[in-house]
Design a binder for these strands. Structure first.
Lengths: 242, 242
DNA sequence: TCCCACAGGTTGTATATACAGGCTAGTGCA
DNA sequence: TGCACTAGCCTGTATATACAACCTGTGGGA
């Protein structure tokens, strides 16, 4: 016996998510109807219905009675999924984005990261540290950890071209994000990286993101407090809607 | 014909939510089992199952296979629901909370509020403005709008005793919250209320909260930037988990 | 040409039924 | 007394079936 078997409606959901992640199904594409899933996979319509209904509730697809089921337009879902990318934000303001990678390594999880990502301390994690610039001014230090089996080739990316967030979104739709925001003083290394004065407060956003129902990445984003008003707003869920 | 009829699984959900909101069912209390709902309401077990399953997904109840369904312990769910109360935060730090109500009125919705709450411009809204103090120091200006039919007696509360957030949570469990955080300069009146210097930046959290699937309240929380590091962290979803 | 009616596909909901698996309390045996 | 087993309730899932409501395209009638 292979432990507890995975329910069929869940398998169906995974199947469709894979097709979306792989690019086989693109935003606004039509997803197989309940009856087509019944024919192609042999499940009952109620099972297909549950799979599609849950994908709808989770924001992967949009269903229209009498018409069909379609891959969600992730642009419209941004305020729910919160996969906003700092490069896009800067572009929106008309600024020019660049980045400098400070660190890029595999590292064992410390207690903090382990707790945040629901793994054992010491488990290998992918770790990247980089500074984002807007028109040459440092505006964010990103310190990110990624669970390896979510995105094995994460460290091989060129983060001066694609931001970590953008790459991770391309691997799989990100499901859910948690944020903690606080203002504190930070260490010398961070202050230097962000070109900050001693005593200047830093606004820190800790963001944890879920995919496939489990936390897969965890980032500490540090913004210089004195320049924060200049960099406009950054947006936890809901920014677009307001 | 009374327009489109409300589905029975939804009626069942509302029924149970009402029992929770009214206090008839308290956290950790047992919720009627699927079979009991079948007997008492005449629906089929699958319909009862769907109602309870969705209440589970939405965080209202917790289900344990083989045991039963129980009202969620909202303390444990805090990091998901984000109904954190500034008075509780202050108490956690050992401080003493007090509040001063600046304004308390019914007012027509302006364009901003209308868009945020999915209502027509000009619809009456309940509006409260108050300052929260920690040990006598102003630390937050709360500017809150509430949809009247969600909490008709909102304005009659004594907000120096119960914070708006605490009162709203007691009316009905709050389902979902959206946040926008940004740092800006604010107007003179706000600066005065918070005892801030000219040119001192303000950290603004805009919070929109859902209940019963629709936005019901919308708050602008303003914190003096220079005192923010002193007031510790404030916590969008996930604070506890980290 | 324009408009209405309808057929057919699609989602949304509701029910009856069935079986698997988890948990608990209580029974009965050693 | 203490332990093992089981009956019974609970949730979780799967299926077949049924009807309602919705949307679109098509074809026929005015």
């Amino acid at each position: 016996m292979t432990s507890t078997s995975i329910p069929r409606y869940r398998q169906l959901k995974e199947l469709i998510i894979r097709r979306i992640s792989s690019g086989e199904l693109r935003p606004r594409d039509r997803v197989p109807s309940e009856n087509e899933l019944v024919d192609s996979t042999g499940v009952s319509r109620m099972t297909a219905n549950r799979a599609l209904r849950e994908l709808n509730d989770e924001g992967y697809v949009e269903r229209i009675a009498g018409v069909g089921t379609f891959v969600a337009d992730f642009k419209a879902a941004l305020h729910v999924l919160e996969v906003r990318n700092i490069a896009d934000e800067i572009a929106l303001r008309g600024g020019e984005h660049s980045a400098e990678v400070l660190q890029n390594e595999e590292t064992p999880a410390d207690a903090n990261a382990a707790a945040a990502l629901h793994i054992e301390t010491g488990t290998p994690l992918l770790h990247v540290r980089l500074v984002h610039f807007e028109n040459g001014t440092p505006i964010q230090l990103e310190d990110r950890y990624v669970v390896p089996d979510f995105a094995a080739e994460f460290l091989q990316q060129d983060f001066t071209v694609t931001t970590p967030s953008a790459y991770l979104s391309s691997v799989s739709p990100l499901q859910e994000a948690e944020h903690v925001v606080r203002a504190t003083l930070v260490d010398v290394a961070t202050r230097r990286s962000l070109d900050m004065k001693d005593g200047e407060p830093c606004l820190i956003v800790t963001r944890r993101t879920w995919a496939h129902g489990r936390p897969v990445t965890f980032a500490r984003l540090c913004h210089p407090g004195s320049r924060f008003e200049l960099s406009g707003h950054f947006a936890p869920p809901g920014a677009d809607a307001l």
